[in-house]
Write a protein that binds this DNA or RNA. Structure first.
Lengths: 344, 344
DNA sequence: TTGAAAGCGCTAACAT
DNA sequence: ATGTTAGCGCTTTCAA
């Protein structure tokens, strides 16, 4: 392995100069720097990450913890974070919690504490006070994506606002019987997201003076399949007859579209559907949705971390930053049939 | 930061003994080990990864390079690899090449050479000789997943065999006009996989004495959308009239099923469709497919690496290991209509 | 079985 | 602007 001394010898300077020339820290004469760089590339020298880390205390590596991997949202966040990190010369080490139950414990107790990462990004994970404290005790900056965590800087969308916007879109089209397929409010794992989204739906209805009918809410588990099943239930019940559905994720919304089709219902003629996410399949299905830009969430998380890491540690108050979301209208929503007839 | 000396002091032993007790290397009296462990956990001691790495030369970290992230196949491989690595106490650092064009160069020239990883897993990447050599020059074991790479141990399925099996399934049902939607053979990026899969389709037909009609092959790009478009073209051409289609991926196959439905064709009554992958959505759509178990591919890759890393470096010849695949019959395939009539 | 001590390869404070 | 040198925190001979 060629080391810093080899480069120093070849360039005819000290190791300190090599270090300075290559890292860009400290002043080095242009000519010297050139010599050093030439020597380094001639020898194919690359700094030893561990030696460098031991000396500086910085790993140039950040840990990203996700609850699942195989999901559009998490991989999108990951992709955004990875891209930004690479631009800063940082590595990303990935911790996926979707294995057995005690994997989470292992990750927090062992992996994250090994001092291999300078900071961590937790995606859609409602961290316990203990978990947060152990990270903070090590002086590791931490940012959460996907929902607020007490005492931690987090990035998330306004889950209430998002479904309210979706519902208002339907209301503005003239719908009044609007169902909601969301996460199971009784089994909330992630930041009460399911109940927040449900609240947005209710708030919009209430604000428009439309009665909230609890039987128009159907719980599901954020998969296409469960969205399909929930929609079948909702659409099959003759007492319900919604003309539109607000669905808490695009995957479930696509399932709902397929269910409607299988029941002989035309979307949007007989039924309007709005999703949330702007999933990559949304354009194909013509799904109207509220985009939440997860890649940007990943990028923003990295930016926050970099500021904390490279900057003079402003020690800003942890806060929950709200990220933008946008309504993307495609062809799964339209005025309700009656409305159209009334106007036609 | 509590260090090894703190533990040594509290336990009343030397740092060498602490190191031995905690790492399990070298003999330590049971009583001593207990004392050390007690002291370590009392202080919340965790070894410094960089110090340990500097001393041992081992990072306990492996790099996984993927061309894309947002794809069922890659995240599945990643999930399998991650799980196995964690069991071995290894970290996984992720390199995603889907950004701008020179990202690949950066990853290979800079990131992977920083000596932050003990080995690398390259997924669906046809590495150049230069890339392979630079890794080998550093003594980094390397295993490829998804196709053969000269001079590298690789894990892959038999792409010819996979479509042959799918095609033979259709032949055995009585189909003779069998189309193929695959990758673009002229734009092969990954291991000639598109043309291998096409060859499997042709080989099966030929072997059954069925004429291969080149116009029954339609290129697509492995997305649901492109599968939909290709199927529409194929099914819309009155000169073609296939009774079955072998599709090179489940996502494209699902697209094809939707296209068939939109054209008023019943699957499998009017058209049988077989995919390849056993994607998570395949059961929902009732898609008959050839499963290729990507998670297992990730796990196997890690196992190979661990053997090379921990074992006595057997220096086995690099080879391409074939992984198993299975036909999973669901409800998207059946005997062709004519056949049924003939027997009915 | 345990301890003393010499590194591992680099960085940064201090000197010049 | 550059060199000297003392660590960074651990592992691992070598000795006891």
């Amino acid at each position: 392995m060629v080391g810093i001394d080899d480069v120093a010898r070849l360039a005819g300077v000290s190791t300190a100069t090599v270090s300075r020339a290559l890292s860009g820290r400290g002043h080095v004469a242009a000519a010297t720097r050139a010599k050093v760089e030439a020597a380094a590339s001639e020898l194919g020298y690359v700094v030893s990450a561990s030696a460098s880390s031991l000396a500086t205390g910085r790993m140039r590596n950040i840990g990203v913890v996700v609850p699942f991997l195989k999901s559009w949202f998490y991989t999108s966040v990951l992709e955004g974070a990875q891209r930004r990190l690479m631009q800063h010369g940082y590595d990303l080490t990935l911790y996926n919690l979707s294995g057995d139950a005690n994997e989470r414990e292992t990750v927090f107790d062992t992996f994250l504490l090994r001092q291999r990462v300078d900071a961590v990004i937790a995606v859609s994970l409602e961290l316990s006070a203990v978990e947060v404290d152990s990270l903070h005790a090590l002086g590791k900056p931490l940012v959460g994506v996907g929902g607020p965590i007490p005492g931690v800087t987090t990035l998330s969308i306004d889950d209430v606002g998002v479904t309210r916007l979706a519902t208002e879109h339907l209301l503005s089209l003239g719908h009044t019987v609007i169902g909601h397929i969301g996460g199971d409010v009784d089994a909330e794992m992630s930041f009460h997201m399911p109940s927040n989204r449900r609240q947005g739906w209710e708030a919009a209805l209430r604000h428009a003076g439309v009665e909230v009918r609890p039987e128009l809410y159907f719980p599901a588990v954020f998969t296409l399949e469960s969205g399909y099943a929930a929609a079948k239930q909702m659409l099959g019940d003759p007492r319900l007859r919604p003309t539109a559905i607000v669905v808490a994720s695009d995957e479930m919304a696509i399932g709902a579209m397929l269910a409607a089709r299988d029941m002989g219902l035309d979307v949007p003629r007989d039924l309007s559907i709005v999703g949330i996410d702007d999933h990559e399949l949304a354009p194909f299905f013509g799904l109207t949705t509220v985009a939440q830009h997860p890649e940007q969430q990943g990028e923003r998380a990295v930016e926050l971390l970099m500021r904390e890491l490279e900057g003079p540690s402003g020690d800003d108050e942890p806060q929950n930053l709200q990220l933008p979301f946008d309504l993307v209208v495609r062809s799964s929503t339209a005025r309700p049939r009656g409305e159209r007839d009334a106007n036609g």
